[in-house]
Design a binder for these strands. Structure first.
Length: 314
DNA sequence: AACATTTGACCCTC
DNA sequence: GAGGGTCAAATGTT
């Protein structure tokens, strides 16, 4: 994989490398801790601290990358204008009668983002640690099950534009295909790991295998299927990659293995609540940038060919 | 009261 | 015009 850095971003590149190296270091410590819990040195950081450090590393990396990517900023500005336009219109309608008022002219209010990056996962769980609000449901042609539409609950107070669509698989009703559209810009990224650790003190036994998480190939015996992230080129930006890394490395990892806290009872399979010992399998399909990534989360394993080696960025 | 969900209408893209 | 994405009033829940 090769990323070409624009001129003048050498410093950013160094920061990114530094953050990733630090993150890897913390992950290594966490791995050691998980493998040898009885040999813990009291002077070392706790597992929770290490997780926080790792997440901070991701966040700092994203911060550097997104701040150097002006196109995204312009896009956000355009949307905020559209939002204010809609708000103005809403306030004008405030005097109308309650019952189905006269149709409003909502032209220009829709922010359909056909160029925004999307990626899809197939999983038993739809909860990903983020707070979502359902804003719609539609019957889809030739689909047995309706599609549910969710937006980030931080849309209004933090302007987070992330949305997702969840649809039950036809051939396997226990599985849900979740399509994520856009990335979270809100600040609730630490929520998921906290929930995990609080909900199950033995989470590490089936949630994370640091060997596989950080690129060292460990036990593949449980990986019976070939997982993929498919990426298509739409709006190729560097921040796309980093956003995906963030999501895959944090949100998805936590969420899929946190399959037992379900956020949408209307579309959830009731059996999930008692399946802690069962296989958690997820396939990621990413429709996004020009980068090729292969991941698998199966039976609690997170296998990745993606390596956070700084040489990858040269 | 505040927040979340439901659901019909509206709008956009193809 | 069909299909699908989003809005927003009504309703439900905490």
């Amino acid at each position: 994989m090769e990323i070409s850095w624009p001129q003048g971003q050498t410093t950013s590149r160094e920061k990114v490398i530094k953050e990733l190296v630090e993150g890897r270091e913390f992950a290594t410590q966490l791995k050691t801790m998980l493998h040898r819990p009885l040999e813990l040195d009291a002077s070392l950081l706790s597992a929770e601290d290490l997780v926080s450090k790792i997440l901070t590393s991701f966040t700092q990396t994203l911060s550097v990358l997104t701040s150097s990517e002006s196109g995204e900023v312009h896009q956000n500005l355009a949307v905020s204008h559209a939002d204010s336009h809609c708000d103005d219109r809403r306030s004008e309608d405030s005097g109308e009668s309650r019952k189905r008022p006269a149709p409003k002219d909502r032209r220009g209010c829709y922010k359909r983002r056909k160029t925004t990056q999307t990626w899809t996962i197939v999983s038993e769980a739809t909860d990903d640690g983020h707070a979502w609000r359902k804003y719609g449901q539609k019957e889809i042609l030739n689909a047995k099950h309706p599609r549910s539409y969710f937006r980030c609950t931080r849309k209004h107070d933090q302007g987070c534009r992330a949305t997702k669509q969840v649809q039950r698989m036809e051939n396997d009703p226990q599985m849900y295909q979740t399509t994520y559209i856009g990335h979270h810009t809100c600040k609730d990224t630490l929520k998921a790991p906290q929930i995990i650790m609080e909900s199950d003190p033995n989470w590490e036994s089936y949630i994370i295998n640091p060997d596989s998480m950080w690129g060292k190939q460990a036990d593949h015996a449980l990986s019976s299927s070939s997982p993929t992230i498919k990426q298509e080129s739409k709006e190729d930006t560097l921040s796309d990659l980093t956003d995906n890394l963030s999501s895959l490395g944090t949100n998805y990892l936590w969420s899929d293995l946190k399959a037992f806290e379900l956020s949408d009872p209307a579309i959830m399979s009731p059996k999930l609540g008692s399946d802690n010992g069962d296989v958690v399998s997820t396939m990621y399909s990413c429709t996004d940038t020009g980068f090729d990534l292969d991941f698998v989360v199966k039976s609690g394993r997170f296998d990745s060919d993606f390596n956070f080696d700084e040489s990858e960025f040269i």
